[in-house]
């Protein structure tokens, strides 16, 4: 997919709104939408353009059961404050749990006593999975205050980065706050990223992490601009 060409972007947004973008492409586009405010605007513009076509059908009166069902369901849930994060795949319980289980199985979040930086009782672990819930990397850090906090990153399997691109790691603070860059990472099996203490304090309370594909020197805008390859929810263990 061409993501930089404005005409191409507009056309993709149009086909998404029209509904002719289907299946896996549609799912990928939706993932990509979450991290690209410009693309969301493009989609909103097309929704606005085509919406008059929705007004051309005669109105129908829904049966009473529809509202009864809605009322019962919204009363049962006490004011859930879901953010745009809410619909990322990792939020859905079962796939998240299976991602954790798989990562544990492969030993990617083994926090052994030998790893002095990370003791099992005060660590935060993020299993980052692709849009099929397949674990692709893990990020872990200790919750204690440190002079030079750092994150340990393990990349699962041998992964390729496209030439001329970079991988940028993002903190997703939650509560609808914008993602915050944690820097560029590599495809190496094990690596460490240092973070300033004030960012580390926020990380301890973050909702999750995401990794996006960016131009060679990282996102030029301070926000994710490319597709989000992997994302995961923070889990204190």
């Amino acid at each position: 997919m061409k993501i930089t060409d404005p005409r191409g972007r507009s056309l993709l947004a149009a086909e998404y709104v029209l509904g002719t973008m289907t299946g896996r492409t549609r799912a990928r586009f939706e993932l990509w939408l979450r991290s690209d405010p410009g693309l969301r605007k493009e989609v909103a513009a097309w929704q606005e353009r085509l919406e008059p076509l929705s007004a051309t059908a005669a109105e129908l009166v829904p049966s009473d059961r529809v509202w009864r069902g809605i009322a019962a369901r919204i009363a049962a849930r006490s004011a859930p404050r879901e953010s745009w994060l809410g619909s990322l795949a990792f939020w859905r319980g079962s796939s998240f749990v299976s991602a954790i289980a798989a990562a544990l199985m492969f030993g990617y979040i083994a926090l052994t006593p030998r790893d002095h930086a990370l003791t099992p009782d005060n660590a935060m672990v993020v299993v980052m999975a692709d849009d099929q819930s397949k674990p692709a990397m893990t990020v872990a850090w200790t919750m204690q205050e440190q002079a030079k906090p750092r994150l340990r990153i393990r990349v699962i399997g041998h992964q390729q980065m496209d030439p001329g691109t970079s991988w940028e790691l993002w903190m997703l603070p939650g509560e609808d706050q914008p993602p915050k860059s944690l820097g560029l990472i590599t495809t190496h099996d094990t690596q460490y990223v240092e973070v300033p203490p004030e960012i580390k304090a926020k990380l301890d309370k973050a909702a999750g992490l995401a990794m996006s594909v960016e131009p060679e020197r990282g996102s030029p805008t301070g926000l994710p601009t490319g597709p989000v390859l992997y994302s995961g929810k923070c889990l204190e263990i």
């Binding site: 929704q47 606005e48 919406e51």
Partner: peptide
């Protein structure tokens, strides 16, 4: 029915969408 439950759950995000209510719901 599913859509209205969704609308209720996401209405707090609505202002950011910067589109008319009917467009957003549609």
């Amino acid at each position: 029915q599913e859509s209205f439950v969704n609308i209720w759950n996401h209405v707090t995000d609505y202002s950011r969408a910067k589109s008319a209510p009917m467009t957003w719901m549609t």
